[in-house]
């Protein structure tokens, strides 16, 4: 067997091992019900509950923002984000949170909000305005 082939095989094995390890990192979307059971970080996707209070008072603490999220199963939880309130937060269609439960609240370390495009908004406006 050529040295080349040995090295090739070794590299393929390393690649498979690396991919196997990398796949361990892949997360799945969880729900708050699961978050309560798991003692560690998870990802939750959900929608903002507009009726519930949203609190951000930068005068008191610019790194403290709370709001309420309804997850895919419809469970509502208060979310604490130790950071500033993002631009256009109220308009978000979907929110993906990374974090864990702390007592009855969900403490988020990362947040991704998905906003409808500006175009859609204008289009809706044109449709509704009936001009």
């Amino acid at each position: 067997m050529k040295k080349f082939h040995i090295i090739g095989i070794v590299m393929i094995l390393v690649a498979i091992a690396a991919l196997f390890m990398a796949s361990e990192d892949i997360a799945t979307y969880s729900t708050f019900a699961e978050a309560v059971k798991v003692n560690g970080k998870i990802k939750v996707a959900g929608q903002l509950v507009m009726e519930k209070e949203m609190y951000y008072d930068p005068e008191k603490d610019p790194n403290y923002f709370t709001f309420h999220i309804k997850d895919m199963e419809g469970t509502e939880k208060k979310v604490i984000l130790y950071g500033s309130k993002p631009q256009d937060f109220e308009m978000s269609e979907q929110i993906v949170l990374t974090g864990k439960m702390s007592g009855d609240d969900f403490v988020a370390t990362d947040m991704l909000t998905k906003c409808p495009s500006k175009y859609k908004e204008e289009e809706m406006f044109l449709k509704e305005s009936e001009i």
């Binding site: 930068p58 005068e59 603490d61 130790y82 500033s84 403490v107 370390t109």
Partner: peptide, 19 residues
């Protein structure tokens, strides 16, 4: 802001903003 530290903040989160 070192004065605004709360005991609740997760270890991997530091305050990133200041007023």
């Amino acid at each position: 802001n070192p004065f605004a530290q709360r005991g609740l903040i997760p270890e991997d989160m530091i305050n990133q903003n200041v007023i």
